[in-house]
Design a protein around this nucleic acid. Sequence first.
RNA 1: GGCCCUAUCGUCUAGUCAGGCCUAGGACACCAGGUUUUCAUCCUGGCGACGGGGGUUCGAAUCCCCCUAGGGUCACCA
Length: 490
Amino acid sequence: MTDLRVRIAPSPTGTVHLGLCRTALFNWAYARGRSGAFILRVEDTDRTRSTAESEAAILDGLRWLGIDWDEGPGIGGPHEPYRQSERSESHERVAAQVLESGHGYRCFCTPERLDELRASQEANKETSRYDQRCRSLSREESDRRAAAGEEHVLRFRVPEGETVVRDLVRGDVRFDHAEVDDWIMVRRTGAATYNFVVVCDDIDMRISHVFRGEEHLVNTPKQVLLYGALNEEAPAFGHLPLMLGTDRKKLSKRTGDTALGDYIAKGYPREAIVNFLCLQGWALDGETEVFDTATFVENFDIADVQKAGAVFDPKKFLWLSGDTIRRMPIEELVAEVTPFLEAAGLASAGDVEARREWFERLVAGEQERIELFSELPARVRPFFEADGEVTYEEAAEKNARKHEARAEHLSAFAGWLEERSVAGEFDTESLSAGMKGWVKERELKFPALFQPLRCALTGMPGGRDLGDCITLLGLDRTRSRIEAAIQRLK
RNA sequence: GGCCCUAUCGUCUAGUCAGGCCUAGGACACCAGGUUUUCAUCCUGGCGACGGGGGUUCGAAUCCCCCUAGGGUCACCA
């Protein structure tokens, strides 16, 4: 009967938090998997903390994740505007209605009195709440004082009884109204509060399902009460388990990065971020850990969401990132990694384009060794260094020096390489095989040649196939590096 | 502290709604082997959980109660 309409309603007050990303992903997938509409609404009712930069960052972040919206700021829609700060006319109208119907009342208590009240309640270990002093004010007195310009807020007149929140994740949750405060709907500034506008806007935008973090669960009875006061049917709710830090508390900067941008900057692939976020509170089938967004959309259901909080595991995230990189087509990997090469000052996008094949080989050799795009520059750095100044890592040099005859072997090997080159047998595969033969013919152990050679060519203790290193460098540079090593390892 | 939510390997989870198919499955991490010129990848194996106590039942990870533990929330923030 009612159209499926879900939304994400971020408040533009800071960075793009991973929790927001996951909530957006779940809402979006729910809509996309059921031909529903996905709406983006900016909750910028806190004028002092909201910024345009933050809003732009959130929109960019969501787009980066692959989330698109059918209605929202910038693209518009049938329920414009999609920025709460621009919807105050509607909010004022509803506020007047609530006051008129008696579901709301003016409260003239000063902030100071409320502060004192709260302080004394806390001192007496009582529940902190409004004492309803203005609730019984007559309508005449209320109108008179308001007309006289006395400052006031608008509170909701919570009736006796209880509210049952129907939650698609948790089932029915009951709240005794004795526990629900006569909450403020409109501030003395005239600006409406979150609990008020979220209901107004969700009604206006015909939102059918509200999926949000569990921290909102205790707000829900207030909102449900308002729907009732407005004679509107409340949407279906679903409160998602919190994403927890390793301290088991709400994910915060204390225990690690929380901003999407931090992970993008570190070089986590988009697919891995989405995949990992999906795994926080939801599972495909309990067996399959790696899946793409389309599969998620096809299979996601709010009823399958986990109830308990999910501790964020950076190790698993890193593994997923590495796994994603390993499965990436090489052209794509090169494209992803190029900005990091540029930032490290190793190569420009132009360089990469000019020597496409060489860069693809360079990157391919590290594909199974990196877990983040950002790890690549350090791993390929030797290929950009001057031949006589390759940085020898301590472990690599130590390995090389273990072999007494290193100079002779390197020298002889250099000669062999010349012959191979002349013979035209200088491809990676035949070189790799030939090198092994070279060692065996001389009845040596592999490390006798390979450790000094690896140090000479890359200065690293481990890494890609040496044949690959040689063809990547070419004969001349390989020779120069071997000659330099013979001197440097004396 | 009040109210609310939650409770399966260290972590993410499958199984819980419709009790037997569960001597509880998968993944990450960890450990041990194997492959490999090295590192990494990859492969094989191992370690490892139903928070505790009562019920109900022929039978409970699954249903009920209590306890305990964790978390969330108590703003003129969202």
